[in-house]
Design a protein around this nucleic acid. Structure first.
Lengths: 215, 215
DNA sequence: CCTGTAACATACGGTGGCGTATGGTAGGCT
DNA sequence: AGCCTACCATACGCCACCGTATGTTACAGG
C-alpha cells in the first residue's frame, strides 16, 4: 500500500491558487481532464496514460491520487452529477410564475449543447451504475420542467406529460446537435422548438393560462 | 498479399442455406456479429479477436474476409445505411393520405427502440465519415416525416418545421429508452407522444385537416 | 542541516488487441 | 489421383495500456 486513499481531500495542493504558479496537481485536476476526454472521445478514451500525457505528468502521479482507474471514473460521475443537481438547485427556487419558462429556455439554449451530457448518457448504456444515476438526474429534470409547466397553467397530469415531451425534444436536440453544426451554431433553435411545443400543447389542452413569451 | 479483397461477394459460402449445415462463414456473418457487438457495447467493443471468439473461429478467418478492422467497420456502416434507406423506401410509396401517419407511428413504435441506431449515432461522434452518412440518413427521415405531414394538411414550411420537431422527439425517446425499461416495454408511448405532438401542432397552426387517428 | 512526507518520475511485468506469416484441410475440377 | 483454392488455425512481433515497485525531488518543521 504505497498511497493513501483520497478519502477526504488532499488538503492544499492548489490547482492554480497556491501561489507557486504551476506544478502540483490535485485529484480534481485529473477529474477535469477525465471529463474533457469523456466529452471529446467517449468513456473508452479515458485512459490513465493518455490523461497523464495530456497533463504532462507520469502515471506515478495518477496512482498517487487514485488507487485505480475505476476510482477516477466514479469521481468523474460524482462530479458530473453534482454539477447537474446544483444547476437545477440554483434555479429551482427563484421564480415568478410564467417568467420561469422563459428563463429556463434561455438557460438551456445558452448552456451549450453539452457534449459532456451526451457522452455520459452513452456511458450509461454500458454501466448499470451510471444508468441509475443518470435516471435520477433525468427524473429531476423532468420534474422541474413539469413544475414550471404547472405554474404556467397546465393541470397536474398534463404538466407531467408535456414535461416529458419537452424533455424528450430537448434530449433529441442535444443528440442531433452533436453531429449538426447548423443546429449548434444557432442556439436559438432549441428555445424555439421548446417554446412552440409548449404553445402548441397549450392550444391543444385549451389552456388560457399565461403564454410563454416567444421573446 | 495473402488474401483477395472482398470486392464482390465470396460467392457460395452459405451462412446457413448451403446444405452442409454449419461451417464456412461469409463476410456478412462478420458484419452481423460486428453490428451486434456495436449495438450491445459500442463501437470500441468491436474488436477482431473478440468477434472471432464469439463466432468460435480464429482471427485467421477474419483477415481472409477483410484486410483490416477498418474495412469491417466500413462494411458495417454500409450495411446499416442500406437497411435504413430500404426501410424508408419500402414505405415511402404506398400511401393514401392521412392513413400514412398512423402507419408511420405504428412502424416506429413497433420497430423497437433500436439500440443499434443509438450506437451508430454515438459512433458518429468520433468519426466524421460516419457523421456524414448519419446526417444523410437523418435528412431522409425528416424529409419523409415532413412529407407525411404535408399530406395530412400542414403547409410547406410548417410541415418541415414540425417534421423536425417530431423527429427530435422520437430521437430523444430512442435515447432515453436506452436506460429506461418502462419506456421500452410500453411501445405505445412513443406513438402517443408523436401523435399528441402532431395534434397539438395542428391545433396551434389552426389546421382543419385530417387528424391522425389516436387508434 | 537533517529528516519526513507529499507528489511525482522511472522501470517493470502482464494482458489484450492488431496485423502478418505460414501451415493445414476440405471440396471441386480435371 | 493429383492439384488448386477457398477457408481457417497457429504462431509471431508489436504496441497501448493497467497496475506495481521503487527511486527522486521539493518543501516543512524542528
Amino acid at each position: 500500500m504505497a498511497h493513501t486513499k483520497v478519502d477526504g481531500k488532499p488538503q492544499v495542493t492548489g490547482g492554480s491558487a497556491s501561489g507557486n504558479g504551476k506544478r502540483q496537481l490535485s485529484g480534481q485536476d485529473w477529474v477535469r481532464a477525465g471529463l474533457t476526454a469523456l466529452a471529446n472521445r467517449g468513456i473508452d478514451a479515458v485512459r490513465v496514460e493518455v490523461l497523464a500525457r495530456d497533463l504532462a505528468v507520469s502515471k506515478g502521479s495518477f496512482y498517487w491520487h487514485f488507487s485505480t482507474r475505476e476510482e477516477l471514473l466514479a469521481a468523474m460521475l460524482d462530479s458530473w452529477e453534482r454539477g447537474e443537481v446544483d444547476w437545477l438547485a440554483t434555479r429551482a427556487d427563484q421564480g415568478e410564475a410564467a417568467e420561469r419558462w422563459g428563463r429556463l429556455v434561455e438557460m438551456v439554449a445558452g448552456s451549450g449543447y453539452s457534449a459532456l451530457a451526451a457522452a455520459v448518457f452513452d456511458w450509461s448504456q454500458r454501466d448499470p451504475k451510471v444508468a441509475e444515476r443518470v435516471r435520477e438526474v433525468e427524473a429531476r429534470r423532468v420534474g422541474y420542467i413539469a413544475e414550471v409547466l404547472r405554474e404556467i397553467g397546465f393541470e397536474g397530469r398534463e404538466a407531467e406529460w408535456w414535461g416529458e415531451a419537452v424533455y424528450l425534444l430537448y434530449l433529441g436536440w442535444v443528440n442531433r446537435a452533436q453531429r449538426n453544426q447548423e443546429l449548434r451554431e444557432a442556439p436559438r433553435t432549441v428555445g424555439n422548438f421548446l417554446s412552440r411545443l409548449v404553445l402548441a400543447a397549450a392550444a391543444l389542452e385549451g389552456q388560457s393560462a399565461a403564454r410563454p413569451r416567444k421573446k
